[in-house]
Amino acid sequence: MIKWISFSLSILLLSACGTSVKRVDSDETIDLSGAWNDSDSRMVAEEMIDDAVSRPWIGDFVSKTGNIPTVIVGDVRNLSHEHINVKTFIADMERSLVNSGKVDFVASSKERGQIRDERIDQDINAREETRKAAGQEAGADFMLIGQINTIIDVDSNEQVRFYQVDLTMVSMTDNRKVWLGQKKIKKFVKNSKLRY
C-alpha cells in the first residue's frame, strides 16, 4: 500500500510540472524545432537590406535624378517547405529600409487602397483646410521582390535544412535589375529517438 501511495504521489508531483513562462528579449535567438523563426526573419531582413542600401544603385540614381530613390516592397513568395509568415519578413525588411534613411518608402498596393478610401472619406467629412487631395501620391522608382526557397535532406532522425532567400530590386522605369541579394542559412537538426 505504501509503495502504491508513493508511486501515485510521484505521478502527481510529475504532473504538477506544468506550464512555465519566462520573458525573454525579443532579439534573443531561441531555436526549438529548427524551423524558420523570428530570428531568421529579422537577421535575414537586416543583413540583406544593409547590403542593398550600401550598393551603387542608390548613388547612381541620386546622381542621375537628384532625388533619393523611392522603393516599394512587392511580393516575396514562400517557395519553402514551411508555412513561413512572409508578412513578418516583409515588415522586417520595410523597417530596415525606412530606418536606413537612404531610400524613401511608399505603401504597398493593399495599404494604398485603405489610404485612398480614407482620402475619399476626407473629401466628404473633413474640414477643407485639412483635406488631402487625390493625385499627389509618390510613385515608386524601384520594386523589391523575392522568394524564400529550401532544400531539406532527411535521414532517420537527422535533418539538414537549407534556406535561401533571394531578393531583387527592379527599376520600375525599364525593368532593369539593379541589385540582387542572396542570403543562405543552413541548420542541422537532430531529433531524439527516445522520449519520456
Binding site: H83, N157, N191, S192, K193, L194, R195, Y196
Partner: peptide
C-alpha cells in the same frame, strides 16, 4: 490538421513510459 501533424511528429520518438 496542422496541430495533429505537430503532435504526430513529436510522437515519432519512442516513449519509454
Amino acid at each position: 490538421l496542422q496541430q495533429a501533424k505537430q503532435v504526430m511528429r513529436d510522437l515519432q520518438a519512442l516513449s519509454v513510459t
